[in-house]
Design a protein around this nucleic acid. Structure first.
Lengths: 327, 327
DNA sequence: AACTAAAGTGTAATCGTTTTCAATTTAAAT
DNA sequence: ATTTAAATTGAAAACGATTACACTTTAGTT
């Protein structure tokens, strides 16, 4: 069933049928007859042919490191939501945290005529930078704040600043379990937030007991064991992610200490696990879903060519501190 | 940069260049010159034009109810893995648990020339049945076992049978928090597994205290409160999913009872939360990732037309019982 | 009534490939 | 040296839409 068949059945030209779908001057008389035939035959124009002719695919490429992470999955959910509203389709690329794959997907997606790309959870490298610069279709980055690239990101620093201040109300000897510092947002900025709060409280940031771990429960667990062994005085642990926090809680409990009586602890993310641990975890809620939705909206603007090309858009998302029992 | 340009530069016909990419008789001489030109210009054939001409898109459609669920995300991860290996691309459709959207996506994907479809986590309805029958491209269903539809599913019944037997070693008065029975796999089959173990132990299945809940932590929590109120003797709770189990644990703890001394509890899924609750949750591990991978492989066979059309393929996945502290 | 602008219409070119078909070249067999 | 079969080749016709262009009709002015 092609546009030709419909045209023939309706007794009009293919141009008329095309105009029926895409707008263009068309008499009511023809509009009606075409509508009738189209509905009777349940005809839908062939998407591939349209893409081929127009150069627009109706597809938005989404590049994500992993799907089995609560935060990415939530952002994806937000993206899917919003993409559907503008009647586009999501094309997925999973990089498995491999930098080459990220670049491969960007190039691939450009070639297969995606109308836009959303790039999630990555860090900048020279190669990525040139790829981004070369890329001819709009790209939005989430979770990070890259110079010159439209992005939607969290206020990591302020969030950590706030939660650290909360911790400092009752605690003095703080340890920090951070994310890899190559990750500007989750690594560097979160640590800076902690340090800022510390300094403001008159504590030299040099004295902060800071470790870097790897986002996992096990990583948090092992790191906490180290801390417990060599820093007996620690009475508050700030973690850059919930999972690491939960790993740390395991280690603390294993050491026979009570949370929060002996040691307080905080995370970031507001995962569902936070509600089922005992005590429940005090954490900062980041608006993941909103992040995905916003990314699509931003991209949509770019795709429509709305935004002034000089005005690179950035959106910084808010956050909430969720106080539970762990502090 | 089109095939025409390449042909001109190489001094051959477009047919030759096409043969270079797709196989077809071609002299070594031409093959070399074409290769040279292609590499120099970094030329890649336009995917849309290929689809248009061949009717094959290189795309596999994946329809999923939600992304922000650990199990679906894991299956997706497995799918993405495997799809990449066969050099296909994933097109995503999120139904938000809406039946109409499911059908909409199936039809849409058929029209936009997906080469295959994977349909996740759904239940059968008459409308879905006819849609499936009408659909001209291969479809694989995961997590459910539908008659006449190729599917990859878990051995839900045996899994529940096993974990119930484990529970029965030390407990007598069992309650069951189930999933909606409209869901054949997670609802009906899991309950049947529990019942089978009960009967085998000489307990009338009619006496099973069985409730239906909704997959959520809150659902588990509320249901458990009801049980605690009206069935004081219950000393073992079997839950159809981890999240409901965690909700139930909250309610049990809140009632001042100890797990597992007063009440034992089990879940299904082996979520990461199971390791951080106290006690850790005894559960059955389903191989989600493997499920996704298998679904792609099965689909791939179907797509290649390998499988005899009379021989509808089914794959039943194994499971493991993970014993932790909650029993 | 005559003229003009606007709206409605169809033909045919086009997008970038693959593939059929017939023509040509090469190699093998007599 | 012929004949026959096999391998190479390119021209041109698809695939299914959109759209520029030119033509016809309609409506609006004077």
């Amino acid at each position: 069933m092609t546009i030709k068949d419909i045209a023939k059945m309706a007794g009009v030209s293919v141009a008329a049928v095309s105009r029926y779908f895409n707008g263009g001057s068309l008499s009511d008389e023809k509009r009606e007859i075409i509508q009738k035939i189209v509905e009777e035959n349940n005809y839908v124009p062939n998407a591939m042919a349209q893409t081929m002719r127009t150069g627009k695919s109706g597809n938005i490429g989404v590049i994500v490191p992993r799907l089995d992470s609560e935060s990415f999955a939530q952002i994806m959910a937000g993206i899917a939501d919003e993409v559907e509203k503008i009647n586009y389709t999501v094309i997925l690329g999973v990089t498995d945290n491999k930098k080459e794959k990220e670049i491969y997907y960007i190039e691939q997606m450009e070639k297969s005529k995606m109308d836009g790309i959303i790039l999630m959870g990555t860090y900048m490298t020279p190669h990525l930078k040139t790829t981004l610069e070369k890329c001819s279709i709009p790209i939005v980055v989430t979770g990070q704040h890259f110079k010159g690239v439209p992005s939607v990101f969290y206020d990591d620093k302020s969030a950590m600043y706030d939660i650290t201040k909360l911790m400092l109300k009752s605690r003095k000897h703080i340890a920090f379990i951070g994310a890899p510092s190559i990750d500007r947002a989750a690594g560097k900025m979160r640590k800076e937030g902690v340090e800022k709060a510390l300094e403001e409280a008159g504590i030299d940031k040099k004295s902060l007991i800071a470790y870097e771990s790897d986002f996992t429960i096990d990583g948090g667990y092992e790191t906490m064991k180290k801390i417990l062994k060599s820093h007996k005085k620690v009475d508050g642990v700030i973690c850059a992610t919930d999972r690491m926090a939960h790993g740390a809680m395991l280690a603390i409990r294993e050491a026979g200490k009570n949370i929060p009586d002996d040691i307080s602890i905080t995370g970031v993310g507001d995962s569902w696990g936070d509600k089922i641990s005992s005590p429940q975890l005090t954490t900062v809620q980041l608006y993941y879903k909103k992040c995905g939705q916003t990314a699509v909206n931003l991209l949509w603007g770019l795709m429509k060519g709305e935004s002034d090309s000089h005005l690179i858009s950035k959106v910084m998302l808010g956050y909430s501190i969720i106080e539970r029992g762990s502090v």
